[in-house]
Protein backbone atom coordinates (compact mmCIF):
# COMPACT_ATOMS: atom_id res chain seq x y z
CA UNK A 1 0.00 0.00 0.00
CA UNK A 2 1.40 3.39 -0.92
CA UNK A 3 1.24 6.54 1.16
CA UNK A 4 -1.77 7.97 -0.62
CA UNK A 5 -3.72 4.80 0.00
CA UNK A 6 -2.72 4.84 3.66
CA UNK A 7 -3.96 8.39 3.98
CA UNK A 8 -7.22 7.57 2.23
CA UNK A 9 -7.83 4.64 4.53
CA UNK A 10 -8.08 7.12 7.36
CA UNK A 11 -10.90 8.88 5.52
CA UNK A 12 -13.09 5.82 5.13
CA UNK A 13 -16.63 6.84 6.08
CA UNK A 14 -17.59 3.21 6.78
CA UNK A 15 -14.61 1.50 8.32
CA UNK A 16 -16.37 -1.02 10.57
CA UNK A 17 -17.06 -4.33 8.83
CA UNK A 18 -19.19 -5.72 11.65
CA UNK A 19 -22.94 -5.31 11.62
CA UNK A 20 -24.70 -4.05 14.68
CA UNK A 21 -27.47 -6.30 16.08
CA UNK A 22 -30.06 -3.98 14.55
CA UNK A 23 -28.36 -4.16 11.16
CA UNK A 24 -28.16 -7.93 11.38
CA UNK A 25 -31.86 -8.15 12.18
CA UNK A 26 -32.69 -5.86 9.27
CA UNK A 27 -30.54 -7.87 6.90
CA UNK A 28 -32.28 -11.10 7.92
CA UNK A 29 -35.70 -9.53 7.37
CA UNK A 30 -34.65 -8.42 3.92
CA UNK A 31 -33.31 -11.88 3.13
CA UNK A 32 -36.64 -13.43 4.09
CA UNK A 33 -38.53 -10.96 1.93
CA UNK A 34 -36.31 -11.42 -1.08
CA UNK A 35 -36.39 -15.19 -1.01
CA UNK A 36 -40.19 -15.09 -1.03
CA UNK A 37 -39.95 -13.84 -4.59
CA UNK A 38 -39.62 -16.13 -7.56
CA UNK A 39 -35.91 -16.29 -8.35
CA UNK A 40 -36.50 -15.81 -12.05
CA UNK A 41 -39.14 -15.74 -14.68
CA UNK A 42 -41.63 -13.26 -15.94
CA UNK A 43 -44.44 -11.52 -14.27
CA UNK A 44 -47.18 -13.38 -12.54
CA UNK A 45 -49.53 -12.27 -9.89
CA UNK A 46 -49.27 -13.22 -6.27
CA UNK A 47 -50.56 -16.56 -5.14
CA UNK A 48 -49.83 -18.52 -8.28
CA UNK A 49 -52.43 -16.72 -10.32
CA UNK A 50 -52.16 -17.27 -14.08
CA UNK A 51 -50.27 -14.56 -15.89
CA UNK A 52 -52.63 -11.65 -15.62
CA UNK A 53 -50.41 -8.71 -16.28
CA UNK A 54 -50.56 -7.06 -19.64
CA UNK A 55 -49.48 -3.82 -21.12
CA UNK A 56 -47.03 -2.77 -18.47
CA UNK A 57 -44.46 -0.30 -19.65
CA UNK A 58 -41.12 -1.99 -20.32
CA UNK A 59 -39.59 -0.28 -17.34
CA UNK A 60 -41.48 -2.36 -14.86
CA UNK A 61 -41.62 -6.03 -14.11
CA UNK A 62 -43.59 -7.68 -11.38
CA UNK A 63 -41.88 -10.44 -9.54
CA UNK A 64 -44.08 -13.32 -8.62
CA UNK A 65 -44.51 -14.19 -4.99
CA UNK A 66 -43.22 -17.70 -4.70
CA UNK A 67 -45.07 -18.60 -1.54
CA UNK A 68 -48.79 -18.75 -0.98
CA UNK A 69 -50.17 -15.38 -0.04
CA UNK A 70 -46.80 -13.71 -0.25
CA UNK A 71 -46.42 -10.25 -1.64
CA UNK A 72 -45.40 -9.57 -5.19
CA UNK A 73 -42.49 -7.22 -5.07
CA UNK A 74 -42.25 -4.63 -7.75
CA UNK A 75 -39.01 -3.42 -9.12
CA UNK A 76 -37.79 -1.99 -12.36
CA UNK A 77 -35.14 -4.32 -13.52
CA UNK A 78 -33.41 -5.16 -16.74
CA UNK A 79 -30.83 -7.66 -17.78
CA UNK A 80 -27.44 -7.37 -16.18
CA UNK A 81 -28.80 -6.10 -12.93
CA UNK A 82 -29.21 -2.63 -14.31
CA UNK A 83 -32.36 -0.76 -13.64
CA UNK A 84 -34.48 1.04 -16.15
CA UNK A 85 -37.54 3.16 -15.80
CA UNK A 86 -36.23 6.66 -15.88
CA UNK A 87 -37.14 7.82 -19.33
CA UNK A 88 -38.39 11.35 -19.59
CA UNK A 89 -42.16 11.69 -19.29
CA UNK A 90 -43.72 12.32 -22.66
CA UNK A 91 -46.54 14.49 -21.40
CA UNK A 92 -45.27 16.28 -18.37
CA UNK A 93 -41.62 16.69 -19.18
CA UNK A 94 -40.75 15.25 -15.79
CA UNK A 95 -38.61 12.22 -15.28
CA UNK A 96 -40.60 9.12 -14.55
CA UNK A 97 -39.58 7.06 -11.60
CA UNK A 98 -39.74 3.31 -11.47
CA UNK A 99 -43.48 3.06 -11.18
CA UNK A 100 -43.91 4.86 -14.48
CA UNK A 101 -45.34 7.84 -12.63
CA UNK A 102 -43.56 11.13 -12.24
CA UNK A 103 -42.37 12.52 -8.94
CA UNK A 104 -45.16 15.09 -9.06
CA UNK A 105 -47.80 12.46 -9.74
CA UNK A 106 -46.61 10.47 -6.76
CA UNK A 107 -46.50 13.57 -4.59
CA UNK A 108 -50.09 14.44 -5.51
CA UNK A 109 -51.37 11.07 -4.33
CA UNK A 110 -54.24 11.20 -1.86
CA UNK A 111 -55.33 8.56 0.65
CA UNK A 112 -58.97 9.26 -0.16
CA UNK A 113 -59.85 9.01 -3.83
CA UNK A 114 -62.01 11.21 -5.98
CA UNK A 115 -64.55 9.67 -8.32
CA UNK A 116 -64.89 11.52 -11.60
CA UNK A 117 -67.75 10.42 -13.81
CA UNK A 118 -67.06 7.49 -16.06
CA UNK A 119 -68.24 9.57 -18.98
CA UNK A 120 -65.91 12.49 -18.27
CA UNK A 121 -63.26 13.23 -20.89
CA UNK A 122 -60.38 12.53 -18.51
CA UNK A 123 -61.74 9.07 -17.67
CA UNK A 124 -62.54 8.22 -21.27
CA UNK A 125 -59.03 9.22 -22.22
CA UNK A 126 -57.57 7.08 -19.44
CA UNK A 127 -59.60 4.07 -20.53
CA UNK A 128 -58.64 4.49 -24.16
CA UNK A 129 -54.96 4.76 -23.29
CA UNK A 130 -55.11 1.62 -21.21
CA UNK A 131 -57.13 -0.47 -23.62
CA UNK A 132 -54.75 0.39 -26.45
CA UNK A 133 -52.08 -1.54 -24.56
CA UNK A 134 -54.00 -4.81 -24.96
CA UNK A 135 -53.21 -5.85 -28.48
CA UNK A 136 -55.42 -8.93 -28.30
CA UNK A 137 -58.58 -7.06 -27.27
CA UNK A 138 -60.98 -4.97 -29.27
CA UNK A 139 -60.88 -1.73 -27.32
CA UNK A 140 -64.23 -0.62 -28.74
CA UNK A 141 -65.91 -3.59 -27.05
CA UNK A 142 -65.02 -2.37 -23.55
CA UNK A 143 -67.98 -0.08 -23.15
CA UNK A 144 -68.56 -0.43 -19.40
CA UNK A 145 -66.32 1.69 -17.19
CA UNK A 146 -66.53 1.34 -13.41
CA UNK A 147 -64.54 1.71 -10.20
CA UNK A 148 -63.09 5.04 -11.32
CA UNK A 149 -60.57 6.21 -8.72
CA UNK A 150 -58.62 9.44 -8.92
CA UNK A 151 -55.71 10.27 -6.63
CA UNK A 152 -54.08 13.47 -7.78
CA UNK A 153 -53.73 13.17 -11.53
CA UNK A 154 -53.58 9.37 -11.53
CA UNK A 155 -56.73 7.52 -12.54
CA UNK A 156 -57.50 3.84 -12.10
CA UNK A 157 -60.59 2.15 -13.44
CA UNK A 158 -62.11 -1.13 -14.50
CA UNK A 159 -63.14 -1.56 -18.13
CA UNK A 160 -65.42 -4.42 -19.12
CA UNK A 161 -66.47 -5.99 -22.38
CA UNK A 162 -70.12 -6.83 -21.57
CA UNK A 163 -70.33 -9.45 -24.29
CA UNK A 164 -67.43 -11.58 -23.12
CA UNK A 165 -67.25 -10.48 -19.51
CA UNK A 166 -63.57 -9.71 -19.92
CA UNK A 167 -62.52 -7.07 -17.42
CA UNK A 168 -59.26 -5.15 -17.11
CA UNK A 169 -57.85 -2.90 -14.42
CA UNK A 170 -56.10 0.22 -15.67
CA UNK A 171 -53.91 2.90 -14.21
CA UNK A 172 -53.01 5.90 -16.31
CA UNK A 173 -51.65 9.36 -15.76
CA UNK A 174 -51.54 12.31 -18.11
CA UNK A 175 -52.38 10.18 -21.09
CA UNK A 176 -49.82 7.49 -20.29
CA UNK A 177 -50.63 3.88 -19.60
CA UNK A 178 -48.92 3.10 -16.31
CA UNK A 179 -50.35 -0.26 -15.35
CA UNK A 180 -52.92 -2.57 -16.92
CA UNK A 181 -54.00 -6.00 -15.82
CA UNK A 182 -56.61 -8.57 -16.77
CA UNK A 183 -59.01 -9.04 -13.86
CA UNK A 184 -61.54 -11.39 -15.41
CA UNK A 185 -61.41 -13.48 -18.58
CA UNK A 186 -62.54 -16.88 -19.74
CA UNK A 187 -59.13 -18.29 -18.86
CA UNK A 188 -59.03 -16.41 -15.57
CA UNK A 189 -62.47 -16.72 -13.95
CA UNK A 190 -63.24 -14.78 -10.83
CA UNK A 191 -63.70 -16.73 -7.62
CA UNK A 192 -67.12 -16.67 -6.02
CA UNK A 193 -67.42 -14.58 -2.89
CA UNK A 194 -69.83 -14.31 0.03
CA UNK A 195 -72.09 -11.28 0.38
CA UNK A 196 -70.31 -9.94 3.44
CA UNK A 197 -66.78 -10.88 2.44
CA UNK A 198 -63.94 -9.33 0.51
CA UNK A 199 -60.95 -10.95 -1.11
CA UNK A 200 -57.76 -9.78 -2.75
CA UNK A 201 -57.41 -10.80 -6.36
CA UNK A 202 -53.85 -9.58 -6.22
CA UNK A 203 -51.57 -7.08 -4.66
CA UNK A 204 -48.03 -5.90 -5.11
CA UNK A 205 -45.68 -3.93 -2.95
CA UNK A 206 -43.14 -1.58 -4.43
CA UNK A 207 -39.55 -1.75 -3.29
CA UNK A 208 -37.49 1.38 -3.46
CA UNK A 209 -38.22 5.02 -3.99
CA UNK A 210 -40.48 5.92 -6.86
CA UNK A 211 -42.39 2.67 -6.83
CA UNK A 212 -46.06 2.09 -6.07
CA UNK A 213 -48.02 -0.56 -4.25
CA UNK A 214 -51.48 -1.67 -5.27
CA UNK A 215 -54.26 -4.03 -4.32
CA UNK A 216 -57.41 -5.18 -6.11
CA UNK A 217 -60.13 -7.45 -4.86
CA UNK A 218 -63.72 -8.50 -4.96
CA UNK A 219 -66.30 -7.13 -2.55
CA UNK A 220 -69.48 -8.99 -1.70
CA UNK A 221 -72.87 -7.44 -2.37
CA UNK A 222 -73.28 -6.34 1.27
CA UNK A 223 -69.90 -4.59 1.44
CA UNK A 224 -70.26 -0.83 1.63
CA UNK A 225 -66.69 0.29 2.16
CA UNK A 226 -63.10 -0.96 2.19
CA UNK A 227 -59.92 0.57 3.54
CA UNK A 228 -56.36 -0.63 3.91
CA UNK A 229 -53.82 0.21 6.57
CA UNK A 230 -50.28 -0.70 5.49
CA UNK A 231 -48.12 -2.11 8.26
CA UNK A 232 -46.24 1.18 8.06
CA UNK A 233 -48.31 4.05 6.81
CA UNK A 234 -51.68 5.69 7.07
CA UNK A 235 -55.06 4.26 6.19
CA UNK A 236 -56.06 4.35 2.53
CA UNK A 237 -59.65 4.42 1.39
CA UNK A 238 -60.41 2.05 -1.46
CA UNK A 239 -62.78 2.64 -4.31
CA UNK A 240 -65.65 0.15 -4.06
CA UNK A 241 -68.13 -0.38 -6.86
CA UNK A 242 -69.93 -3.18 -8.66
CA UNK A 243 -68.38 -5.95 -6.60
CA UNK A 244 -64.76 -4.78 -6.65
CA UNK A 245 -62.44 -2.71 -4.54
CA UNK A 246 -59.12 -1.20 -5.55
CA UNK A 247 -56.49 1.14 -4.26
CA UNK A 248 -52.85 2.07 -4.73
CA UNK A 249 -50.31 4.04 -2.74
CA UNK A 250 -46.68 5.14 -2.80
CA UNK A 251 -45.07 2.90 -0.18
CA UNK A 252 -43.45 4.61 2.77
CA UNK A 253 -41.04 3.36 3.84
CA UNK A 254 -40.30 1.96 0.43
CA UNK A 255 -38.60 -1.20 1.62
CA UNK A 256 -41.40 -2.83 3.51
CA UNK A 257 -42.86 -4.20 5.69
CA UNK A 258 -44.94 -5.83 2.97
CA UNK A 259 -48.18 -6.32 4.80
CA UNK A 260 -51.19 -4.51 6.14
CA UNK A 261 -54.76 -4.79 7.35
CA UNK A 262 -57.90 -4.61 5.26
CA UNK A 263 -61.01 -3.28 6.97
CA UNK A 264 -64.42 -3.49 5.39
CA UNK A 265 -67.89 -2.50 6.47
CA UNK A 266 -71.10 -4.19 5.55
CA UNK A 267 -74.64 -2.95 5.14
CA UNK A 268 -75.56 -4.07 8.65
CA UNK A 269 -72.99 -1.66 10.05
CA UNK A 270 -70.51 -4.34 11.07
CA UNK A 271 -66.80 -3.80 10.59
CA UNK A 272 -64.45 -6.63 9.66
CA UNK A 273 -60.67 -6.82 9.47
CA UNK A 274 -58.12 -9.24 8.06
CA UNK A 275 -54.52 -9.22 7.00
CA UNK A 276 -54.18 -8.50 3.30
CA UNK A 277 -52.23 -11.67 2.61
CA UNK A 278 -54.86 -13.79 4.35
CA UNK A 279 -57.63 -12.74 1.97
CA UNK A 280 -55.75 -13.48 -1.21
CA UNK A 281 -58.37 -15.22 -3.33
CA UNK A 282 -55.91 -17.63 -4.86
CA UNK A 283 -54.36 -18.58 -1.59
CA UNK A 284 -54.79 -22.10 -0.28
CA UNK A 285 -55.25 -20.71 3.18
CA UNK A 286 -57.82 -17.99 2.87
CA UNK A 287 -59.10 -16.34 5.98
CA UNK A 288 -61.28 -13.40 6.63
CA UNK A 289 -62.81 -11.29 9.30
CA UNK A 290 -61.11 -10.84 12.64
CA UNK A 291 -58.81 -13.78 12.26
CA UNK A 292 -61.54 -16.38 12.04
CA UNK A 293 -61.80 -19.08 9.37
CA UNK A 294 -62.66 -17.79 5.98
CA UNK A 295 -66.09 -17.35 4.52
CA UNK A 296 -64.58 -16.64 1.15
CA UNK A 297 -65.26 -19.18 -1.52
CA UNK A 298 -62.08 -20.09 -3.33
CA UNK A 299 -62.06 -21.14 -6.92
CA UNK A 300 -61.73 -24.91 -7.38
CA UNK A 301 -58.17 -26.05 -7.70
CA UNK A 302 -56.75 -22.75 -6.57
Amino acid sequence: MNDIDALLLGLDAEPGPRLTPAETARSERLLAQITQCAPSGLAQYAGGRPAAVRGRPPARFVLAAAGVAAAALVVGMAAGGQFLGHAAGHQTGQAQVRSGLTVTELADWTAVPGHPAATSPVVRRAAATCLASFSSFDAAAFTAISDVDQRGSVITLMATDPASGTMVFCMSASGRDVLSEVVNASYLPLPAIGAAAVNALGFSFGIGSGTISEAIGEAGSDVTGVSFKPAAGKTITATVQDGFWSLWWPPSPSNGPFDGTVTWTTADGASHTADLASILAYSKKPATGNGKPSAIAVSPGA
Partner: peptide, 23 residues
Protein backbone atom coordinates in the same frame (compact mmCIF):
# COMPACT_ATOMS: atom_id res chain seq x y z
CA UNK B 1 -23.36 3.95 2.65
CA UNK B 2 -20.23 5.48 1.20
CA UNK B 3 -22.20 6.63 -1.81
CA UNK B 4 -25.75 7.63 -0.81
CA UNK B 5 -27.48 9.46 1.99
CA UNK B 6 -28.63 7.31 4.87
CA UNK B 7 -32.32 7.57 3.95
CA UNK B 8 -31.67 5.83 0.62
CA UNK B 9 -29.32 3.11 1.83
CA UNK B 10 -31.90 0.43 2.54
CA UNK B 11 -33.63 0.96 -0.79
CA UNK B 12 -30.42 0.53 -2.74
CA UNK B 13 -29.30 -2.50 -0.75
CA UNK B 14 -32.73 -4.10 -1.15
CA UNK B 15 -32.78 -3.59 -4.89
CA UNK B 16 -29.24 -4.84 -5.26
CA UNK B 17 -29.88 -8.12 -3.49
CA UNK B 18 -33.25 -8.55 -5.16
CA UNK B 19 -31.44 -8.32 -8.49
CA UNK B 20 -28.88 -10.78 -7.18
CA UNK B 21 -31.61 -13.20 -6.17
CA UNK B 22 -33.08 -13.10 -9.63
CA UNK B 23 -29.77 -13.36 -11.48
Amino acid sequence: RRRVREADVDDVVSETFLAAWRR
